[in-house]
Structure formats: structure tokens, C-alpha cells
Write a protein that binds this DNA or RNA. Structure first.
Lengths: 364, 364
DNA sequence: TTGTAGGCGTTATCAC
DNA sequence: GTGATAACGCCTACAA
């Protein structure tokens, strides 16, 4: 702060230290401090401290063409999965002087495009994308422009981008094995959207899991959700019940879908896990406080964020750093939503559909 | 985009439209478009479109001393209350070309100071603070520097800042009246931190609510939480049970504390609402999916964000715009966690403390 | 209505 | 080792 209320600039500091602004700049910048004599460096530093000098990042950005800002695209911050991830991202970025600009796309390609464009206009130094569909004009453009990009919780093998995600196949296999070991032989899957990498990976993991447990995929109904939402989970679970397949367990492609299952079972008068076991994926915050607490597949959310940030920072600092595909290991979390099937809901018709289409458990 | 890969600048546009850059600038800027002839305005607009011109916000900021960026300080994005608020904020800001820089303080004054300083260094145009304690050096500094500031979900009458919050007194009064009407005469309060405006307002509302229902505040124990966390709710509820006051209902100062109560009651072998009713405040996302679904006091989260953004934008565009204190109306949401007290837990000793300090309901 | 010129604060590239 | 100069891209008195 100079005598006038105006914030101190580099010129003020230079004047106070009686050096040229260029010298002051060199003295203050860690990268170039060695170009300047010990003595003047100290004088400049003192002056800066005395005046409360804060470099103006805007001016610096204009000159260096770095904004120290990265764009982060997520589907929806309201999905409890994202806050911890975003915090990991922000914390790691902050360490290096970067800040995140957050953009919600609501799973809408048009919104995604808008937000992406606005961030490009703001000259972000790179992007973290948690919204990538398998084929995606935004990815095409980012690749063409050679922007630093990291995919988070998504993979897209057709693009030269680093990514961090969970080993979805393995996670789902583990979930299926857990159900199989409990004695379930008819297991349904509520699959995620198949335009999204997690949707296909988890479906694949589901099928593999069945096979490796000697179960027949053809006996195992799969219903496809159009999005990772509670509403879709509700709809899919209703559909499953209506199909009357005699399933005793549902592996949902994520926790939101599982929450939808809870609601559907409630409405159908079925109980979890007594009548039907449910397992999710993500172990998102608060999911352990539902009744019953949801069994699910966990991965370290916060760390997903920090790793994504790390990869992006590497990419930004050297454009030709190698592309890295990072997988975090999933971990089965057994809570109260999964249990051995009860005797009376053995194969075929534990559930029957009433005329109205709502399902009731036959016995009990 | 020019023929070279370099993004188009204003000069490129001007050259393409065969006018001077200054003219191009005027033509492109809505504020000054009228200073330029219809004809050239169109030529410039065409050229800009053809070249895919995007004004460089960094250069603009340097010149106009506006960053079109605002700092948003919240305690913790992981608290489910905040995501919808933040989305409201971001959406409203985006309409006017602003973006939010998010900072989590974790309720720590040192972190708050750091984040605040970093945002100032980035020359944000204003702040939205959801972290304000009643007396706060950051607020002092912001007031002294005459920064545009809006308080969100907080008030601080000693400062000349606009604010948006819920009518906390009324909300809590309503909650207490609800319990009283159910027949509860011994109602406990888990109060929020008293350095925070919501903590004191809700405590005041609690006391007023008792009085207006003919209940005696002296019969109504109050335990103070050190923070709005599940852990503190757990601790406070345990403390309440240990005091053996014969309360049949708990009004928690917010939903997180109420969730802590659920856990404490569970551990003590008590059931909600059969043994003890619990009511929260906030109606945060997912709280309706707990068992039992929590009765609470709702306010429009998203709108809290949009209104805060609106107030800040007003403040930014005219520095001497009036200070506004905005209250949103709360609404009682009755779910399953509140019920009439059962006959056997009438006054005095429905709960007794076992030697180990853990509480058990006497009957049942 | 349009052009001129200067500067926002910083840093890169010269020359000394 | 330090100083001078120019430039990053844009905006805005002021002049024409």
C-alpha cells in the first residue's frame, strides 16, 4: 500500500528500493532472483514487504499468457460425490498458485459446450473434465488445440489425455462376488449410461463377475439408466420388479441409482436386505447414514481430485510430458443393505406383478 | 482464429473490417456500440464472427480494473448445504459474465485469512462470505478497503454489508411450536456456535418459542456445539442424555447436529421419534432420506445463492448502492422424526444414566 | 463518426 | 548485474 490508498505496484517497489522496475521484477521472481545481486535483492524484498506489495496477477497473466486458472467441468455439484473430489482438486491446485473455475454441465452437451467456451475465453491454462462422454466434440476441440486436459472419473481411449479413475471393472466384479458369496444366484444390474466410460466398464465388470462366479449372465437382467440420478434408479428398479425375474439382489452402477432402488423397494413394499439386497458404487458421503446403510464400492474421492490436479499441473508445465492413465483401487464396503437371500425368495417367482403393475412380495 | 493458429485479437478484427482497433472496440462493446455507424458496426461484427474473436478478459481486466471474478468463502463444500447455494451463486453470476472463485475455510480463521488474501491478490471484484463470525478481522479489513461484500447465511450488524439469510428466529420458533403442539413440554436445544449469527439467532428463537408456548426456558436444557458438525451433534446429544433431564424432544440448531443426534440415540438404544423427537434446521439435501426422515426447517438454498449474487452485483456496479438486509422466509417441514411423546416418557426420568454413562430408556 | 495516443502492471529481450 | 525499452490486448479521453 503506498501513501495514497492505491495498492503498491512494482514501480513503487522499484522506486522505494531505488532500482529499475525490471530489476525489482527479477529480484522478486524466484526464477530469476539469481540474476540479481544479493544486496539489491534484499533491498527490493524489504521495500516490497514495507509497501505490502502484491504482484498483480492480471498484468502478469497478460504478459506471460498464463492465467494460473484451470477449468473444471463436472456434471453437477449437487451430486454428493463431487464436493470431496473438488476439494482435493482445489487444495492441490492452490499449493501451486492455481485456482479452479467450476462449471456444472448438468449432463447437457449444450451447456458443456457453453461453459467450455467461456472458460477458454478466460484463457484457463488447462481443463479437468469429469463430464466426458466417450465421443465428444469438446474433447475433439481440446485435442486439436492441444490444450492440457485431464479426464477425471472418466476415460476416453481415443484421445491423448491423461486420466484418473477407479478400476471400475474390478470394483463391480468385487461387488458381484460379494453377492454371489452371500448365496445370490439371480443378480440384476442397473447399468449406467453407455455413453459414459463408467457405464460400460461397470457393466463389463458385472458380466465378468457373474462368469467368474459360475453364474449365467443370461439369467441376469440388466436395465439401463439414462443418467446417474435417483429418479433413474427409481424408474429402473420399478422396471426390474415389473419384469418379475425372481432376482434377489441388485448391483447398481452407482450410489445414486441405489438410492433410487431404496425408494422403489419402499413403494413396492419390499424390504432391503430382507427381500432384496442392494449394492452401490462410490460410497458417496452420507450414504452410510441411510437405512439400511448401503453396501458399496469405495474409492478415495479426495485423492481422485488431488491426482487429477497433479496430472494437469504436470501437463501444463511441460506440454510433452507423457500421457498417464491412472487407476485408483476400489474397495468393497459391506454394510447392511446386502444379506443372504431368504429361503422363500429362491429362483423364479418371489416377486409377482399385480394387475396395476406394482409389485408385491408373495409370501410374508 | 487467424490463419496462424493464434487466437484473434481486436487488431485482427479491426484489420479484417478495415477500421481502427479503437473503432472495432467500440463496435463490439454493447455500451458504446451506438457511437459507431450501423454500417461499420456490422462489418466489425461480421469480421469478429468470422475470425471467432473472443475478447481477452485478462487484457480487459488490466485495463478496466475489473476481473469479473468474485471470491466466495464457505466453511466447507462437503457440507451438503452448500452445493445448492453455490450453484445459485454461480448461475446468477454467470448471467452477468462473472465467475466465482471458491474458498473453503474449514471454520479456521487462519485459513480464512489466507484464502481472503489470495483472492484479494487476484483482484476479485467482491466477496460473498458465508463464513463470517460476529467479529472478524477479515470483515474489518474488507470494510476499511471498502470492498463490495455480501454476507450469506450470516449477519453482522456492526458492518455496513448487505446480507441474505433466513429468518432464523422465526424458523426456530416454528420448530419449537411444532414440538409443543405435539405435546412436548420438556424440549432441549443443541445450540450452534455463539460466535456465529445463526447460533445466537436460533438460540433466541428457541427461547422465544418456548415462552410463546407457555413453556419454561429454565426447564429446557441447552447444550452448546462448538461447530455445525455431526461429531458435535453426537457429543452434545450424549451430554444431554447424560444430564437425565427427562426431555422428550430435541431441537437442533441445524441438520448436521441433528444427524449427530441420530447417531447418539442409536448408540444409546433410543429410538426416534418413539423415545425422543428430533428436529433440525436447513432441510439439507438427502436429509429426507435418513430413517426416520428428519423434520426440519427449510429455506430455499438455491435462491439464497442467487440473491446473494444479485446483491453483490448491485454493490459492484454502484459502490454507493444502499445496504440491504434480506431475509428469506423459513418453512416448517414435518417428516417422521417428530411425534407426540409416549405416555411413559413423561417428565423427569424417562431416561436414566447407567453407571457407564450410557443412557437407556427405562421402560420398553 | 472515426482515429490517435497513452497506459493498465508485468516481464522478456535487448544493450550497457 | 542492471537499466532501458517494448509488448502482452484492450479501453478511453481527446482530437480531428
Amino acid at each position: 500500500m503506498t501513501k495514497s490508498g492505491r495498492p503498491a505496484t512494482l514501480r513503487d517497489v522499484a522506486a522505494a528500493a531505488r532500482v529499475h522496475p525490471a530489476t525489482a521484477s527479477r529480484a522478486l521472481n524466484p526464477e530469476t532472483r539469481l540474476l540479481v545481486s544479493e544486496d539489491t535483492a534484499k533491498r527490493v524484498a524489504d521495500a516490497a514487504a514495507r509497501l505490502g506489495y502484491r504482484p498483480n496477477p492480471v498484468a502478469r497473466s497478460l504478459r506471460t499468457r498464463r492465467s494460473y486458472t484451470v477449468g473444471v467441468l463436472i456434471p453437477d455439484l449437487n451430486n454428493p460425490l463431487f464436493p470431496p473430489i473438488v476439494r482435493g482438486l482445489e487444495d492441490r491446485l492452490a499449493e501451486k498458485g492455481y485456482v479452479a473455475l467450476l462449471g456444472n454441465t448438468d449432463g447437457d452437451a449444450r451447456r458443456e459446450r457453453m461453459v467450455f467456451d467461456q472458460m477458454r475465453a478466460r484463457h484457463v491454462d488447462g481443463f479437468v473434465l469429469a463430464t466426458a462422454t466417450l465421443h465428444n466434440p469438446v474433447l475433439d476441440e481440446a485435442a486439436a488445440a492441444e490444450l492440457p486436459v485431464v479426464l477425471m472419473n472418466r476415460t476416453a481411449q481415443d484421445y491423448p489425455f491423461s486420466s484418473v479413475s477407479v478400476d471400475n471393472e474390478q470394483g463391480t466384479r468385487t461387488a458381484v462376488s460379494h453377492l454371489a458369496r452371500l448365496g445370490h444366484t439371480r443378480i440384476a444390474h442397473i447399468a449406467g449410461p453407455q455413453e459414459i466410460s463408467t457405464g460400460v466398464s461397470r457393466l463389463r465388470g458385472f458380466t465378468e463377475g457373474l462368469r467368474s462366479n459360475g453364474l449365467d449372465p443370461d439369467q441376469s437382467p440388466v436395465v439401463y439408466a439414462a443418467g446417474y440420478t435417483i429418479e433413474e434408479g427409481l424408474r429402473c428398479c420399478h422396471e426390474l420388479l415389473a419384469q418379475d425375474t425372481g432376482c434377489t439382489a441388485i448391483a447398481a452402477a452407482n450410489d445414486m441409482l441405489a438410492v433410487g432402488c431404496y425408494a422403489a423397494l419402499d413403494e413396492a413394499g419390499l424390504r432391503c436386505p430382507d427381500d432384496i439386497s442392494v449394492i452401490g458404487f462410490n460410497d458417496m458421503p452420507f450414504i452410510d447414514r441411510l437405512r439400511p446403510p448401503l453396501s458399496t464400492v469405495r474409492f478415495p474421492h479426495y485423492q481422485l481430485g488431488t491426482e487429477a490436479a497433479q496430472l494437469l499441473l504436470e501437463r501444463i508445465s511441460e506440454a510433452d510430458s507423457p500421457v498417464k492413465i491412472l487407476y485408483l483401487a476400489p474397495e468393497l464396503v459391506v454394510r447392511r443393505s446386502t444379506a443372504a437371500p431368504t429361503a422363500d425368495d429362491q429362483p423364479s417367482a418371489s416377486v409377482s406383478v399385480l394387475p396395476g403393475g406394482s409389485a408385491r412380495l408373495r409370501s410374508r
